[in-house]
Design a protein around this nucleic acid. Structure first.
Lengths: 250, 250
DNA sequence: TCAAAAGTGTTGACGGTACACCCATGT
DNA sequence: ACATGGGTGTACCGTCAACACTTTTGA
């Protein structure tokens, strides 16, 4: 646990650290962290964010985005993935850089610049994760997010805006669904993210016309009504179409 | 001039620097810089980037993006604007954060993370700038960019991709033109950025239908043929329409 | 008078939107 | 048998794409 309250085992790389000492005098450096906005979706509930409760001051006891210091020998994305794994158990997810936040006063103690990432995962896949036992990690529906530490509320808003924008012209929505899903689940996902109702027939026609989904020979199970057909998104098919000038758009 | 070869007067903030010393041991910090991709356009020529020639090792004598260290008390954007002013004389321009580059080996000497920005300016407005006298600052057409230092080529490519994407759904193209411009100049700008020919009548109809431009009672001067009407982009009008659900799109 | 760019409308194709009913399944 | 969501087609309308000639001006 670091002095700044982020979770990082202390394994300094001595040669790099020594080399840096000389430079530090001429150029005092901001601290560098990564923070992750993890979105989870489940057609039974809604779109949620993963938060952790801070154990250290400042903002002790408040909720915050998972994140921590960047090590000297790892890339920014690697740092984000490591923090995500260490703090929340989340692994192997869609992860993309969002924006870098660097207002001088965003951390009350020291200058800390943070590179924010956002991640997308299916809650149906990993239902509430192994970490739910830990009292300090929890999912919050987007309309019930508690006050957040630092400028994390601003980061969250930026992530929502990015997701809303990007989901319309890149097929990233599928990252929030299990591998096999129904068209109704997909529609509910889009309605939730875009915050507007969509017409069922138009939605289905449009998506199927794109030729990105393969219909499986399977149906939903465990529902108290007619079981819906399951579909799968084909990333390779998308790459192929994209090279032929196809543009995903919804 | 810093040991890392970026241009920054050495004015350490001693109290912050001292406070940081204690943390440095537990958390050796990457150095943090900003780099700027400055795009300039002129309907007589084409889309260009502003580069500076490095005077220090490494990559001595090679071309690079303007940039330098972030100071402890300034925001990232302020650092980008300061470096731009100090190194190239460019001021008061459209500037937006692009992406943060942090591969551990992107600087051969030390870990340096760089927050990249891109800027848009009209060359007709500031024709080749006061700095053209300086031998170490120059504009390069995008299809004639020399080899660049560090990973600056990658940064440039990312900036081009961003510009190409964004120009289609936000009216940022006007930042590359003088305040008063002709529709032909605007069309040439879009053709250059999107790298495809556009139909003159369709282009004009579509833009004028958007109701974002005001026709001025002035025409071009100094051309050896019929002078074209001048137009002006109205940012307030855009904000107003946006709130009514209007989406710029080309 | 010539060269060079400005300016202007119509048509056909396509995709978006709006809209309502029957079907399959589990309880 | 009933409740719940699954699944399907068409008609209208607006927007995009293709396309060529006349006008103005300066040299």
């Amino acid at each position: 646990m670091s002095i700044l309250g982020h979770n990082e085992p202390c394994i300094p790389l001595f040669c790099l650290a020594a080399r840096q000492m000389a430079y530090t005098y001429t150029h005092p450096r901001p601290a560098l962290t990564v923070d992750c906005v993890v979105f989870g979706f489940d057609a039974q509930t809604t779109l949620q964010v993963l938060l952790i409760q801070r154990k250290l001051t400042p903002y002790q006891g408040e909720w915050a985005l998972p994140g921590g210091f960047v090590r000297l020998a790892e890339s920014l994305e690697a740092a984000a993935r490591r923090e995500l794994r260490e703090e929340t158990g989340v692994e192997d997810v869609f992860l993309e850089q969002l924006y870098t936040f660097g207002q001088p006063d965003r951390d009350p103690r020291d200058r800390v610049v943070s590179v924010a990432y956002y991640a997308l995962i299916s809650l149906a896949g990993h239902p509430l994760q192994a970490r739910t036992d830990a009292q300090d990690t929890a999912w919050f529906a987007l309309d019930a997010v508690p006050p957040l530490a630092f400028d994390h509320h601003q980061i969250l808003q930026a992530a929502i805006a990015r997701l809303r924008g990007k989901v319309r012209y890149e097929p990233i929505g599928f990252e929030l669904l299990p591998e096999k899903f129904t068209l109704t689940q997909l529609q509910k996902l889009y309605e939730t993210i875009l915050d507007q109702p969509l017409d069922k027939r138009n939605f289905r026609n449009k998506l199927l016309r794109m030729d990105l989904l393969v219909a499986l020979d399977e149906t939903q199970t465990g529902v108290a009504h007619r079981a819906a057909r399951l579909y799968k998104f084909e990333p390779q098919r998308y790459e192929q179409l994209k090279q032929q000038g196809f543009n995903f758009e919804l």
